[in-house]
Design a protein around this nucleic acid. Structure first.
Length: 795
DNA sequence: GAATTCATGATTTTT
DNA sequence: TCATGAATTC
């Protein structure tokens, strides 16, 4: 987010030297064009100002991609005179969209107001809001999230009497999702079903689509799928959008899936002014059906496309770039590209082993401390990156313990909180009475005497009449009970009360603004009282609802139902909220807005960001690469790209940590250093720079630091020559146990174990890969200097 | 019908 | 370990 400030200084130097070569190829106003492109390198200028048709920009990390895109937009509007509203800029994530928007805002404030940057999903939702009727979506349709999807599928399994254990909901969901992204609809799916499982999945898929259709709902994939169908089948609508958008810009192209590419392709078919930007080495979303072959497809679709490669990094030091390149070079399936930089050589990459995740967190914090003190680094410029969210826990705990302010990115999303979803479900139901998933969610929340059995009966009645669940609810209220719902008197009373609640909300939705409707829903549903009774989490959840109310406030002033629809759409498509702090129990020192804080973030989310110092933690087999990826070479390559993304976030300092053992799912297990660490060229690595002060003040044996030697495939080493470094009888010294004599050395899986008799400390068994063992007297050890820079401040 | 306990099971990344 | 769903008790 702060990349521009840092990058600009260097980039202006780059452009100054070679400014005279190319006059702008387009007439326009050369003077103006020069100003707009000022500060860009030649390559960047080329990318920003090429407007003669399809353009593919391959942009390595730190090559100023967003900068170029922003300048391109400025160039189009400023120099080429394209009205901003005739440009369609699409990105993959909200974050990327926001960043691009902000960049443009700074560059061309006037045009930026008219320029809209969409995510694919939000753009599709927009098209469907106007013309969804053509593809079976009525006004005010609901967007179903994963949770709703799961709910629908679970119910279908119930109806079909399928055991969810044999057909896990999650699995079915991903089958359905991937089918949609390949444009395979239920009939085709069933046609191609070969196995019994596929056949069942096909039936579930079919039922699922029927359910969504009846509920006037679309899941995330439907947004893309239906938008595509709309454009493909309705020439006049396609024409409308083709005319409207003279230029199309697609960011993070490597993350788009075939469906998204097809949408872009259709939209661009007329003008052919399509510019896509991406880096195949940073494709980390294949699990969401992103398909990096889109890049090759792009060239096939637009054979005359111009290709510009941005391979100068303005971000990282040479060492970091080389290290990252060495890792990514191990990917077979890859468009070769080597980054270079004029930046300084820089420090080596610090690789260190720590005892466990606690030690890991301590080491990070101590080093953060040192960076802040010795290099006057702002904590804003420091990030800790990890593979899975669960890893943030130990870091948070440690930050809290030592009072280091931090900012946790991601985690439990605000809009995914239970209470938030509950209240939103009331609003959803108000807007779309067919929204069964919403109804099911809140029919008995808070408890109002409608049991599961009653709900089942309601569902049965609704199903036999093929009508929304709410109709069954209303039927109970009706004396004639047209749907023939059969309930006990008591249950019926409860249902009637609920029906009245919904009716009242619907009535009021005509006149109340969204936030007022939230108030009403909270009050009338008994939610407020319910939370008040809950001493444990009630207050916190209430706070979240106040927050929700606050976020609804900006959707007021217009037609209430319109505003409500917009609010709900936004909520569905924008999962993160700016400035909303997560109310997690560790949030004691979670930083306030504006306070300098280190960033805790997953590798995925870190894409596109940069920091002076980056700590990659959990560099272990099973974590990075993730255990789920080890079997499949393609997935393994994606893990490597993920590693690459992490490494290339660092400007000056890169740390890669792994533990000796890690607590995982409750139990302790030994960890193996990530294979990616072994792909780092030795001369670029320093295994001794990180030190934990805690190791001195607390139990010293807590922390043990590995030598680079430990990274070499230990099994191979020990098999051929066990005890390469030590043999029985050697006199050794250990940092903690002191002087001793090696009793025996033997190979164990992944390492070499030495049994050493220490004078005064007894006999210990040590892993040579991890233990800090030196030959005593001879002093040959690879890292005899045990003191390091950071110890100075720590004492 | 609701609350409590118990069991189980699942754990990547995001729109 | 933690969260969610099912079984059991009130």
């Amino acid at each position: 987010m702060t990349s521009s400030s840092k990058a600009s200084g260097k980039e202006s130097g780059a452009s100054g030297s070679e400014n005279k070569r190319s006059a702008p190829r387009n007439s326009g106003t050369p003077a103006l064009a020069d100003t707009i492109l000022d500060g860009l390198s030649d390559r960047q200028k080329e990318a920003a100002s090429y407007t003669d048709g399809p353009l593919l920009i391959v942009a390595g990390p730190g090559s100023g991609k967003t900068r170029v895109m922003a300048h391109r937009l400025a160039y189009l509007t400023g120099s080429e005179g394209v009205p901003p509203y005739r440009i369609l800029a699409v990105t993959f994530t909200n974050k990327a969209a926001r960043e691009l928007r902000e960049r443009c805002q700074r560059l061309v404030p006037t045009a930026a107001d008219q320029l809209r940057v969409f995510t694919f999903h939000s753009f599709c939702a927009l098209m469907l809001r106007f013309d969804g009727e053509y593809v079976g979506l009525k006004q005010g349709f609901t967007i179903y999230d994963d949770d709703d999807q799961a709910r629908v599928i679970r119910r279908i399994l119930q109806e079909m009497d399928i055991d969810p254990k044999q057909f896990p909901v999650g699995q079915l969901r991903s089958i359905i999702s991937s089918s949609k992204n390949k444009n395979i609809l239920p009939p085709a799916f069933q046609q191609n079903a070969e196995t019994y499982r596929e056949e069942v999945a096909g039936r579930v898929y079919e039922k699922y689509q029927e359910a969504l259709s009846r509920s006037n709902a679309a899941d995330f994939d439907d947004l893309l799928l239906k938008a595509f169908q709309l454009l493909e089948n309705q020439p006049e609508i396609l024409d409308k959008y083709q005319r409207r958008y003279e230029h199309i810009l697609v960011d993070e192209f490597q993350d788009t899936n075939p469906l998204q590419f097809n949408i872009a392709r259709l939209l661009a078919a007329k003008h052919k002014n399509i510019c896509v930007v991406g880096d195949p080495d940073q494709s980390i979303y294949s699990w969401r059906h992103a398909d990096p072959t889109n890049l090759t497809d792009f060239r096939a679709t637009f054979p005359d496309a111009k290709i510009v490669t941005l391979d100068q990094s303005y971000r990282s030091t040479q060492v970091i770039l080389e290290a990252a390149d060495a890792v990514i070079a191990n990917n077979e399936d890859r468009m070769e590209k080597t980054l270079w930089t004029e930046n300084p050589r820089g420090d080596r990459v610090s690789v260190a082993e720590v005892y466990d995740e606690e030690g890991e967190a301590r080491a990070v914090i101590n080093e953060v401390d040192r960076l802040v003190k010795q290099h006057d680094l702002s904590r804003d410029q420091i990030a800790v990156m990890y593979r899975i969210n669960a890893q943030s826990r130990s870091l948070e705990v440690a930050c809290n313990r030592s009072g280091v302010p931090y900012r946790l990115v991601g985690g439990v999303k605000f809009y995914e909180r239970r209470e938030v979803k509950d209240i939103l479900s009331f609003l959803r139901l108000v807007l779309n009475p067919a929204d069964d998933a919403a109804l099911e969610r809140i029919i008995n929340v808070p408890a109002r005497g409608i049991s599961d059995r009653s709900v089942t009966e309601l569902r049965r009645a609704a199903a036999t009449h093929e009508t929304p669940l709410l109709d069954a609810v209303l039927s109970v209220q009706d004396e004639k009970n047209p749907l023939g719902v059969s309930l006990s008197k008591r249950a019926a009373n409860s249902v009637v009360a609920f029906a009245e609640l919904v009716e009242r909300l619907v009535e009021q939705s005509l006149s109340l603004q969204p936030q007022e409707l939230i108030d009403l829903a909270m009050e009338r549903s008994g939610y407020v009282r319910w939370l008040q009774e809950d001493k444990e989490t009630g207050e916190e959840r209430m706070e979240n609802l106040r927050e929700l109310r606050g976020s609804a406030e900006q959707y007021s002033g217009g037609d209430p139902r319109e505003q409500l629809a917009e609010f709900l759409e936004n909520v569905a498509l924008v999962s993160d909220v700016d400035g909303v702090r997560t109310g997690n129990p560790f949030a004691a020192t979670q930083a306030d807005v504006g306070q300098e804080a280190i960033t805790l973030i997953t590798l995925h989310q870190a894409k596109g960001l940069e920091f002076e110092a980056v700590f990659m933690v959990g560099m272990e087999e099973g974590l990075l690469p993730h255990s789920r990826s080890v079997e499949d070479p393609a997935q393994m390559e994606e893990e490597r790209r993920l590693c690459y993304v992490g490494m290339t976030r660092a400007k000056r300092w890169l740390y890669m940590l792994h533990t000796f053992q890690r607590r995982f799912r409750g139990s302790l297990s030994p960890s193996m250093p990530s294979r990616f660490l072994m792909e780092l060229p030795e001369p670029l690595v320093n295994a001794q720079t990180v030190r934990s002060r805690a190791s001195q003040t607390e139990t010293r044996k807590d922390e043990m630091w590995s030598r680079r030697a430990a990274m070499a495939p230990a099994a191979a080493r020990s098999a051929s020559q066990p005890g390469l470094e030590f043999a029985a009888g050697d006199r050794v010294r250990h940092s903690h146990f002191g002087e001793g004599v090696v009793v025996s050395v033997k190979a164990v899986p992944g390492d070499v174990e030495a049994t050493v008799a220490f004078s005064g400390n007894g006999v210990k068994r040590l892993m040579l890969g991890f233990a800090k063992l030196e030959r005593s007297g001879a002093g040959v050890g690879a890292d005899s200097g045990s003191s390091s820079t950071s110890e100075k401040g720590g004492e």
